[in-house]
Design a protein around this nucleic acid. Structure first.
Ligand SMILES: [Zn+2]
Ligand SMILES: [Zn+2]
Ligand SMILES: [Zn+2]
Ligand SMILES: [Zn+2]
Lengths: 163, 163
DNA sequence: CCAAGTTTGTTACGTTATAACAGATCGCGA
DNA sequence: TCGCGATCTGTTATAACGTAACAAACTTGG
């Protein structure tokens, strides 16, 4: 969480470490910002950290159920609200699904590269792009609050597999 | 449809003309490309052209019902499939809703400025941004197929109204 | 007219998300 | 340590969004 990963999530990498460091970073940030990573929130976060794949709310709810932490939709949506609001996870609008953040600190925006075959998601920042958007918006006298940029396609592996 | 509008949809404008020209452009393009703007498709398009506001599939279905053109969800989703596939309308992922195209010709992508208060949507093109994205994607060996850029915020009118 | 392809319309169902409320837990000051 | 307000958890119920599968109607070209 504390800095951009030095690897590409679409490439093979030491994901055990990736996951462990991401969790540690969230714990540190919660501690620093006096946020409570309660059991359902942590359960959802850990499920998201297992893979760089977007998961639906109901897949995450299954994890909560298995962990004995409640079995109804509001539980998972509230945990997600917390994670999204604090920049620990992102919503992929295109998929109505969620991924753990691999990138920033605090609430932030990013560009998501979303593989339509394996649903893995890479997160990139693109400040130049944000400046372009600001210029465009100001021509319309539009006050920007949130930017969602989602690029759908195929990751190298899935493209290679002949999808 | 045939060219970018010379006005900003967030500003007051001659919307009767705006709507009439958009419909004429779609009719022309259907004729040129041998596409069939059948009654349900036209009904949905006209509903979308009434305002520059994103409408949900079920709002559009109500229009079909009123027009006696079927009352079940698949009817509206199929009409939308046609309009989206041919670039006559766009889906706003953030809202799970749809707007008429004000911009291009044929299937195309754009940047959407979405007012969270009035749900009006302005469409802008941003080729520079697309080039940025391509560069980003190629670093990840990612094959881009679709790009969705949605900017949420407040239009000048809604910001003025103290939202 | 006939056959093939496309479009329409229906039933039924699956998925995603939220409202409303009761009970549990936490943090803090008396 | 005890209470008290705020936050969080968990439930029921329901709303909103979307699709599979199939039969009937229409369109187009021979
Ligand atoms: Zn990893
Ligand atoms: Zn992939
Ligand atoms: Zn207009
Ligand atoms: Zn507005």
């Amino acid at each position: 969480m504390t800095e951009a990963p030095s690897f590409d999530v679409f490439q093979p990498h030491d994901h055990r470490r990736c996951r462990k460091e991401a969790l540690a970073a969230v714990l540190a940030e919660c501690s620093a910002r006096k946020l409570r990573l309660t059991p359902p929130r942590r359960c959802v976060l850990e499920a998201l950290l297992e893979e760089h794949r977007a998961m639906t709310a109901y897949e995450l709810l299954d994890r909560l159920r298995e962990a004995g932490l409640g079995s109804q939709p509001p539980v998972v949506y509230r945990a997600l609200d917390f994670l999204l609001a604090n920049g620990f996870a992102h919503r992929i609008e295109r998929l109505s699904a969620f991924v753990a953040c691999t990138h920033g600190e605090g609430a932030h925006e990013a560009v998501f590269l979303v593989c339509r075959a394996c649903r893995q998601v890479a997160e990139a920042s693109l400040p130049a792009l944000a400046r372009n958007l600001e210029a465009e918006a100001s021509e319309h006298a539009f006050r920007v609050e949130r930017v969602a940029i989602e690029v759908e396609g195929l990751c190298a592996r899935c493209a290679g597999a002949g999808a």
